[in-house]
């Protein structure tokens, strides 16, 4: 027989922003923070989808760790001491959103998502009133080929929420990403027009899950496109409840 120490129960305690909190083993920093009313900005995270870790807005400081960690992808450990807000983190977050705004063509005043856009709201929340980086002004297409939905690459932030919901929840895996660096882009099937996709079931989940005006319903005018994301927790719950 090997000697072993009783490792105890399945719950942990830790500190987030000087507040003592508890959580279950396996919970992420982001989950526990939100459960306790502590807001950490996110764009690529979506409850019910796999972790992506791409937007880097959720970076937090962990005492004793030289590196910042992404709250959405970091599992809590006993006694962790986390700061979710500091002048340094705020500054990084502002720069990240500025980079997103400079990367493609965001002109809110003529955008169908104006007023209902997570990127726009994030910019407001972080107090961004100008972008210090040179704009890229890339020439990008609008894919109008699907009879009900539209993909406007000018507004895409490559958060991959659409790719994940399509593959993981709808099970179609119509969407994916092509290219490298700033030339990366969302594609349908083998990089063909959305309307010609043979795998798309036209369920519309990607439109509702998209944080920006990149995926929208056709026929929406400026500021008219609102999204419903409440379906996802229900679907996730149903899936988990199945034996």
């Amino acid at each position: 027989m090997t000697t072993s120490i009783d490792v105890g129960s399945e719950s942990l305690t830790l500190r987030i922003d000087d507040k003592d909190v508890s959580c279950r083993k396996g919970d992420t920093v982001l989950q526990v923070a939100r459960e306790n009313g502590i807001d950490i900005p996110t764009l690529c995270y979506m409850e019910g989808l796999s972790i992506w870790g791409g937007c880097r807005l959720c970076m937090v400081e962990i005492a004793g760790s030289p590196k910042l960690q992404a709250a959405c992808a970091t599992v809590c450990t006993e006694g962790m001491n986390i700061s979710t807000h500091s002048p340094r983190l705020e500054n990084y977050r502002r720069m990240i959103v500025e980079l997103l705004l400079a990367e493609r063509n965001h002109v809110c005043s003529v955008c169908v998502s104006n007023g209902h856009c997570e990127l726009q709201a994030m910019a407001v929340k972080l107090g961004i009133d100008h972008v210090r980086f040179p704009y890229r002004f890339p020439h990008l297409e609008v894919d109008n080929s699907h009879d009900r939905m539209r993909m406007d690459h000018n507004r895409c932030i490559l958060c991959s929420r659409c790719v994940r919901v399509c593959a993981e929840v709808e099970g179609a895996h119509t969407k994916d990403i092509k290219g490298r660096g700033v030339l990366a882009a969302i594609i349908h099937d083998l990089d063909q027009n959305w309307g010609e996709s043979e795998t798309c079931t036209s369920c519309g989940k990607c439109v509702n899950i998209c944080p920006t005006g990149a995926l929208t319903h056709r026929g929406t005018a400026v500021g008219e496109m609102t999204k419903k994301t409440t379906f996802l927790p229900y679907l996730t719950l149903m899936r988990e409840a199945q034996p």
Partner: peptide, 22 residues
């Protein structure tokens, strides 16, 4: 680095582009 960035995370994807621009 700009052309080899995989494009997944924003700081690298757009940051290397902007650093190269500067």
């Amino acid at each position: 680095c700009k052309s080899e960035s995989c494009g997944k995370c924003v700081p690298c994807r757009v940051g290397t582009y902007e650093m190269h621009e500067l």
